[in-house]
Structure formats: C-alpha cells, structure tokens
Amino acid sequence: MTEERLTQAEFTQLVGEVERLSQLRDEEINREQMQQILQELNLPTDLVDEAMMQLQRREALEAQQKRNKLITVGVVSGLVVVIAASFLWFQTQRQTLKNIYANPGQSQLTLETNSGKKTLTVVDSQQNPEVFYRVTLQDAPVGKKLSLGCDWINPNGEISHQNSYQTKQINKEVWPTYCRYQFNPSSPVGKWQVKMYLGDRSISKTEFTVK
C-alpha cells in the first residue's frame, strides 16, 4: 500500500476539520444525558420525543421562511429591473418620436397625376380630384413603423375626412409619406386646411382653397 502524502495546505485543512468535528462531538448531548438533565430539572422525560419533533418542525419552518424571503427578494428585485427597463424603453421611444419633424419646404398638396411636381393651392372640386398631402419626415426612426393620421378640415371648421395609417418599415432618416382625400362637387368651397399627426402631435399643416 502506498503511503498517502499531504501538502502543508492540505494538512492544515485536515487539522482544522478534525478540530471542528471534535468540538461538535463535545457539544452533542446523547439521549441518556438529556434524560438525566431533565430529571435534575424535575421535567418529564416522556416528552423528549415530542419536543424533538417540535424543535425539528420549528427549524424546518424557519428554514422555509428564510427561503421564501430570499425568493420574495429575488422576485421583487426582478420586477424592479423589468419596470426600470420598461420605463427606460418607453422614455427612449418617446424621445425618438419627439425628435421627428416635418420639413416645411417639402410638404405640399398635389394631384397623383403630377407625382408631386406641382404644388396645389386651389382644388377644383367639380373635377372630383383625389388630392395628396405629401410630407417629408426628418429624423425618422430607421427600422421602425410610424402610425400617422391626417385631418381634412373644411371652411366651417369641421373635419370632413380623416386618414389613419401605418408606414412601411422605415429604411432612411428622411422619409416621404402622404395622406389623401377624394373631393367632389358637394365639397364645401372656401379655405380648407389639412393637418398631419404623429400620435396626438401635429407635425405638419397646409392651407388651400376649394372652388
């Protein structure tokens, strides 16, 4: 049989473990000693088993409560992280939308037939024209889609028509978009206005005349 050799560090650990086990053995009280102590204290020895069971239950309950507390702390910490992350995401999204604006010089009212080359200031409703309000967004969020809307407001201050739509996935920061309305001979004549909205924020508007 080969002789087992220990390093100095392993020997030190071994001595420490032997001392710990020796101390635990000295601290333990066997059943005979326990009954003798109870008799000296004039306490019933027949309740030892029940007392031990109660003690074990109490220790188990305390251990369970400790585990539950750790679980609760973990769950609460996780919720705090999720809430903080959600708040940060919401603030980032809000700021991203806030940064979007429309270039006034590139917002125009046109007919589809002229593909935006000629800006309309007067619309002849007798010709039943479909009119396009073309807007160029600046600082558009690449990789996102935007929910936009338009109000077509007649001379009486009433909304004659509303558009509500979602853009395609944006692939450039300067993003052209449009909304449209079909006029007809019954459309009120006079000064009209069209407004484009991003959420509840007006980002562009223009006035024109219907005759």
Rank of each mutant, 00 (worst) to 15 (best):
E17S: 10
V18E: 02
E19H: 05
L21P: 00
S22V: 03
S22E: 07
E27P: 11
N30L: 12
R31I: 04
R31N: 00
E32C: 04
M34E: 07
Q36F: 13
I37Y: 06
L38Q: 08
L38R: 14
L38E: 00
Q39S: 15
Q39K: 12
E40K: 01
T45A: 10
T45Q: 12
T45E: 07
D46S: 15
D49L: 03
D49M: 04
E50W: 05
E50C: 03
A51M: 02
M52E: 07
L55D: 07
L55F: 14
A60P: 00
A60W: 10
R67N: 09
R67W: 06
N68H: 05
N68M: 14
L70K: 11
V73E: 15
G74T: 10
V76T: 10
S77P: 07
V81W: 10
V81K: 13
V81L: 13
I83N: 06
A84F: 02
A84L: 03
T92F: 09
Q95H: 13
K98Q: 09
P104A: 00
G105Q: 14
Q106L: 15
Q108T: 14
T110R: 05
T113M: 04
N114G: 11
S115E: 11
S115W: 08
K117V: 07
K118W: 03
L120V: 06
L120M: 03
Q127M: 00
P129Y: 15
E130S: 05
E130Q: 10
F132Y: 14
Y133Q: 15
R134L: 04
R134Y: 05
L137P: 08
L137Q: 09
Q138T: 13
Q138Y: 02
D139T: 04
D139C: 01
A140F: 11
V142R: 09
L146C: 12
L148G: 02
L148M: 14
L148Q: 09
L148H: 07
G149Y: 01
G149F: 03
C150M: 08
I153P: 01
N156C: 09
I159D: 12
I159M: 08
S160R: 11
S160Y: 14
